[in-house]
Simulated assay, not measured.
Amino acid sequence: MSETAIWLVRGDALPLGQRLADALGATLYQPWLTPDDSPREQFRRVFHQHRRWVAVMASGIAVRYLDGLPASKYTDPALVVLDEAARFAIPLLSGHEGGANALAYEVARLTGAIPAVTTATEALKPLTLGIGCRRGKSADEIERAVLAALGARTLAEVREVATIDLKADEEGLLAFCARHGLPLRVIAQSDVAARAWVGQPSDWVQQNVGVAGVCEPCALIASPRGRLIVPKTAFDGVTVAVVEDCRVVGAT
């Protein structure tokens, strides 16, 4: 039995569900294949057989499916709701302790969805890092660049890291994020090109990546109500920008 499961409510979502199942090594449930059995009852029987769920459905349907099932945030499976258009990945159950927040970012990287994390532990952290790097940069090199850019600020204040989709598989960046428990938000190249808030466009990035810059636009797209407090800063092939969420700062 796989740790992760995908639950669909309609056949129209099958291509999305299959793609997620393949990428996550997940069990894919298609309840319409057993028409004599209520989909909700099918779900209730298998809910505790998996530790992570991606429910491709409306959040209202998910709430009704979950009625009476959750017991504790320390033991409940993680559940992320993903709409069929893959616009939003919403951690609905066991977000922080159970790993649904991390799963939402994982689903977002695979689908281009926006991770809608609402738990206070993550939401009250004000900083977003935009990172770009040349291929093959190590986690240590990226960390040195980040710490230099943060200055007196700390990694404990960072909510997420954002980069362009072409860097989604960059081993050093993934290792850096894993080392510090930071979620990686991947921004589509087309979105970066359309919203290129770049103070100093880079000819090298334009020629090699197809956009005028990576770290600044990625950070600002990931934190749309934030302000750029550290513009693009380059450290030996790694660029870092820091955006601060103004509303979080005002609330603390």
Rank of each mutant, 00 (worst) to 15 (best):
F43R: 04
G25C: 11
V211G: 03
A251L: 12
L33V: 10
T252P: 10
A23V: 06
F88R: 13
K232Y: 02
A193H: 08
V238D: 07
R153N: 10
V198Q: 00
G199S: 09
D169K: 06
P231Y: 00
G25N: 13
R10E: 12
Q49E: 15
D76V: 00
I6W: 10
K167I: 03
T233F: 10
V80G: 07
V238T: 03
H50N: 14
V158N: 04
L16K: 02
L220G: 03
H96R: 01
I187F: 01
R247H: 15
D67H: 07
H50V: 12
P115E: 05
K137H: 00
D236I: 08
D191T: 12
T118W: 05
A85V: 07
D236K: 15
R159F: 13
V243F: 14
R45Y: 03
T252H: 13
P224L: 00
Q30L: 12
A104W: 01
R44H: 03
K232R: 13
P217T: 07
I164Q: 01
G181P: 01
I6K: 15
I6P: 11
K125S: 02
D165W: 09
K73G: 09
H96S: 00
D37T: 14
G98P: 02
P183S: 15
L182V: 10
G237Y: 10
L16F: 02
A196V: 03
A175E: 13
I187C: 02
G210P: 02
V161P: 12
R225S: 14
A162K: 13
A85S: 09
L93R: 00
G98N: 05
I114C: 12
A58S: 14
P31S: 05
L124M: 07
T111F: 05
D83L: 04
L129S: 00
P91S: 12
A58G: 13
A139D: 11
I221F: 09
G151W: 05
L69D: 10
G226W: 08
S2K: 15
R64D: 05
V81T: 08
S223N: 13
A5S: 06
L147D: 11
A178Q: 13
I114D: 12
L20P: 02
W32L: 10
H50Y: 11
L150I: 01
P201I: 03
V192A: 12
P231A: 00
G199P: 08
G11A: 11
C177S: 01
L182N: 14
L82K: 00
C218D: 02
G226P: 07
A178K: 15
G11R: 04
R44E: 09
G199H: 08
A251E: 06
L166E: 00
A104P: 03
T128K: 12
R247C: 12
V158W: 04
L155D: 10
G98W: 05
N101R: 02
A149W: 09
L66G: 08
S94M: 07
H50W: 07
